[in-house]
């Protein structure tokens, strides 16, 4: 009996603590509940948002979801290429695997769709196919691509009955031009001036 009464206070305090922490945790679980898997958002942010469907999913977010649920491989994004696969691999803690060759070939050059306007018959099929609403034009009138909105997903090419849509590389201008990466050890700098001690 004495033993019991000695331990009673310890048991009671433990029970009280358990109840307290249980209440706090329960409250926190409701108050700070995360509605959506945040990993999906992170994955979605890594994908290039071309919405081309070459991964076999109807858009980038569905693919992000399926990566998050581990129902698809991380190497399906063709427009993203190896860079995107590396980024996803880092995020998911997986090993890098090269781009699935079945899905297509990755090109580093950004592309844009261009309609040969004198050949366009105004069928609006490309307008309906464009996931970006980047093609402008009404029925029986010539259509055109809003280049700044085009992601170069080439979903408009197949529906065109007269094959008047070309996917061309974005022309380099002074604005989107980039410096070439230096070639590294053993190379002499190209057109850049050397910065040498010119005594």
């Amino acid at each position: 009996m004495e033993l019991f009464s000695e331990n009673l206070s310890a048991i009671m305090s433990l029970v009280a603590l358990a109840l307290l922490f249980g209440a706090v945790l329960g409250f926190a679980a409701i108050k700070f509940a995360v509605d959506e898997d945040p990993i999906v958002d992170q994955l979605d942010a890594l994908l290039p948002q071309t919405q081309c469907g070459q991964c076999g999913h109807p858009g980038c977010r569905p693919y992000a979801e399926s990566i998050a649920n581990d129902t698809d491989e991380i190497n399906k994004c063709v427009p993203g290429g190896d860079d995107t696969i590396h980024a996803i691999a880092d995020l998911m803690g997986k090993d890098f695997i090269p781009l699935d060759a079945e899905e297509g070939e990755h090109s580093d050059v950004p592309v844009v769709a261009v309609i040969r306007e004198d050949e366009c018959i105004g069928c609006t099929k490309c307008t309906q196919a464009c996931p970006m609403d980047a093609i402008l034009g009404s029925a029986k009138h010539m259509h055109t691509v809003i280049a700044s909105e085009c992601t170069g997903c080439d979903l408009c090419v197949d529906p065109c009955p007269v094959d008047c849509i070309d996917i061309i590389p974005v022309p380099t201008t002074q604005r989107n031009w980039t410096w070439e990466a230096p070639q590294g050890i053993g190379a002499t700098p190209g057109q850049l001036i050397p910065v040498r001690n010119i005594a």
Binding site: Q49, Q51, G59, P131, D133, E149, T178, W179, E180
Partner: peptide, 27 residues
């Protein structure tokens, strides 16, 4: 030369991110 290249890439990447955000929004 390395820094100019890297600076430009940082800018290009942020432009691309902005573009892909824009694309996501549109989609």
């Amino acid at each position: 030369q390395y820094y100019r290249y890297a600076k430009r890439q940082v800018r290009v990447n942020s432009e691309q991110n902005a573009k892909s955000d824009h694309a996501r929004e549109r989609f």
